[in-house]
Design a protein around this nucleic acid. Structure first.
Lengths: 240, 240
DNA sequence: CGTTAACTTGAATTAAGTCAACTGTCGTGG
DNA sequence: CCACGACAGTTGACTTAATTCAAGTTAACG
């Protein structure tokens, strides 16, 4: 069982802007050189209000760095059905394809600061910089593995296992670290959770109630969740 | 809508071995230099019989190059439930994580030749070679995007849409290219298709029958499928 | 040609969806 | 500070798509 997906906290950056935090994470050696400067020219900083979509060129793949806040990556199929493919938190870099079988959009769950890069130009600039490519590759593998785990849940798990899995996963990314329990402040609504787990909002609600009755979680308000026994929850999640 | 996921055909290699074909694809500039040699030392060539699992060190992440044949990447959750996370064809490079929430194994659908690399050593050797990292990154993004599209299907599509989506996707990867129709020789069983789409073998069979009755496909034997009208099939797949 | 496993089809069951009514939370303005 | 409104979440009753169980068919291989 993996211990944690948590990234190192984004360094507090008084006097530094989003871009410096980004460089520090993805290209520490390039902070001052020409590659750093070229990337700075490419980066489009944006503030996205809660519920708004990051405006992206529909013709070009994009790489989006999340500076603060939280986002959901939504895929639209026909008939307006939406599937949330991933959630993202500060310090992460998201690859958003322009044209695929489904259309993707990146939407803020809370007030969010991002840097938007055109993927092609980004890769051109960093083509000669192995350190950046390596960092990108590592993140890309991590995203792929997370997406695969998600696929397992969507394909082969029942509602309770999916929710348990979701909570355990979120705990690993944004939960407070405590010995035998864990506190979560979920930035997403029940609808978002449903859209992420391939379930309806009513089913999510029922499963929250069941986990509550089993004594595995406690909830306060709409967003606060206490995982009383993370190990037991992981077991319910159907992890091996 | 994407035109094709097809890779350029693996060059016929009389007198060349699997490894040369691999290098040609992922590190054309390194064929003779020390990086090429280092990679050659890392590569473990193996022949895997149909139905057998590629033997991988359970403690280390692996990168597996598919030289010939076809494979499925299986995730095992608790209670023996299996979800096929991806299929792979010659020329592709698969990242198999050692430890995650689910346990992964790579299994041959037919007689298959592979090269197995330890992921850490591979990345160490190529850390200074941007061309290789770039190729890897490109493939990794492609796999991620395919996995996301799969997640949309598993989360939000009914049985018929999933099968239609599967057939269109396979057509793009291994189908014969013809103007208004397309012939497929599926190397996987109905059970594999079910395990990939999160459905049972019976449901797969029923949906094949329905697509047949709708005149969208014809089947001969167990593996041959003719897509009579790929565009109409893509529409049924719920692609936008 | 016969055996076996893969596939197909039908009938009964079930987990999750849908529809509808109700309750709690949170922000706003009196 | 409290009352109110609006929306997010909860719960119940009924429906449905897919699973499960069971009984045939068909294709592939020796």
């Amino acid at each position: 069982m993996r211990v944690s997906n948590r990234l190192h906290p984004v360094p507090a950056a008084p006097g530094r802007n989003q871009f410096d935090a980004f460089l520090l994470r993805f290209a520490p050696a390039c902070a001052t050189d020409e590659i750093g400067c070229a990337l700075r020219k490419l980066a489009q900083p944006m503030g996205i209000a809660k519920g708004r979509t990051v405006p992206l060129d529909p013709a070009k793949d994009a790489l989006v760095y999340i500076g603060s806040g939280a986002t959901k990556l939504i895929a639209c199929a026909s008939s307006g059905r939406e599937q949330i493919v991933a959630f993202h938190f500060p310090g992460e870099l998201v690859s958003v394809p322009a044209r695929a079988w489904h259309s993707y959009s990146l939407c803020a769950l809370a007030g969010t600061d991002v840097l938007v890069f055109p993927a092609d130009a980004f890769l051109e600039v960093t083509a000669a910089e192995p350190a950046v490519l390596g960092a990108l590759l590592e993140r890309s593998f991590a995203a792929l593995h997370r997406c695969r785990d998600k696929a397992v849940g969507l394909g082969r798990k029942n509602a309770q296992e999916r929710l348990a899995s979701f909570l355990v996963g979120m705990a690993g990314r944004i939960g407070s670290i405590e010995p035998d329990q864990c506190v979560l402040d979920l930035p997403m609504s029940r609808r978002d959770i449903g859209d992420s787990l391939g379930l309806t909002i009513e089913t999510i609600s029922r499963q929250f109630s069941e986990l509550r009755q089993s004594g595995l979680i406690e909830t306060t308000g709409r967003s606060r969740v206490l995982l009383c026994d993370p190990a037991a929850l992981a077991k319910r999640a159907g992890h091996i």
